[in-house]
């Protein structure tokens, strides 16, 4: 690593270390875990800088922090899922809310095209199938738990899931068929997933 590069990264880590730990502590409610995650963030940034040129280390630190904080939140969510019944733990509810941080449609614009397409499709689902799908897929709740929350039977949840799956899959298929009809010359390589 070039000395200027090392310099830049050192400076950024030094400057943002406390801030990051404070934010992670607030997010995770646990200063030890916050320290661990901050540590991983810096290791990841450092490893990245070993092989690539970093122009804005702070942006890289924040990006890594977003990803690793999410991993930790998900990991904890699964942990609480298994060990705590939903009504018992306020802590789990807090995690639940964080994990459901579903961005609004206007923020989708800044994300990758395929990501935005799917998020918009989820947003466009009818209300109950959308709720059931998001609680099951993003919050890791069982059909039984969702049924309790929504005040319906488990078999209703299964019907909502079928409806959500079908509609989402059809949006994806439609998008792909649309792509296939576009003829370009010279042909551009297809980077989409094979169906």
């Amino acid at each position: 690593m070039a000395p200027e590069q090392r310099d830049l990264i050192e400076e950024a880590i030094r400057r943002d270390e406390k801030l990051l730990i404070r934010w992670l502590t607030k997010k995770l409610g646990d200063s030890d875990a916050a320290r661990d995650v901050a540590q991983s963030v810096f290791m990841r940034v450092w490893a990245f800088a070993e092989t690539s040129t970093v122009e804005n280390p702070r942006a890289l630190i924040f990006k890594a922090a977003g990803n690793l904080a999410l991993n930790e939140i998900k990991r904890r969510n699964r942990f609480y899922q298994r060990h705590v019944t939903p009504s018992e733990s306020a802590e789990k509810d807090a995690l639940h809310n964080v994990a459901s941080t579903a961005p609004s449609p206007e923020t989708h614009a800044s994300l990758r095209e395929d990501v935005a397409l799917i998020l918009n499709a989820i947003h466009a689902l009818p209300e109950r199938p959308r709720q059931a799908f998001m609680m099951n897929r993003f919050d890791g709740l069982s059909y039984k738990e969702i049924a309790k929350t929504m005040g319906v039977s488990e078999s209703s949840i299964e019907k909502y899931m079928i409806e959500a799956l079908k509609q989402l899959r059809n949006v994806l298929n439609a998008e792909r068929t649309k792509g296939e009809k576009i003829v370009t010359f010279p042909p551009i390589p297809d980077r989409r997933r094979k169906s």
Binding site: L20, R22, K26, N67, P103, L119, F138, R169, N173
Partner: peptide, 30 residues
């Protein structure tokens, strides 16, 4: 498989969006 695929894509998309939301939150905090 087409349903397995959309399920996986949805989870990936949600992760990307949630990580981006956390990143923005950290920016605001900073």
């Amino acid at each position: 498989d087409s349903y397995v695929e959309i399920t996986e894509l949805a989870s990936e998309a949600h992760d990307v969006a949630a990580a981006a939301a956390l990143e923005r939150e950290l920016e605001v905090f900073a």
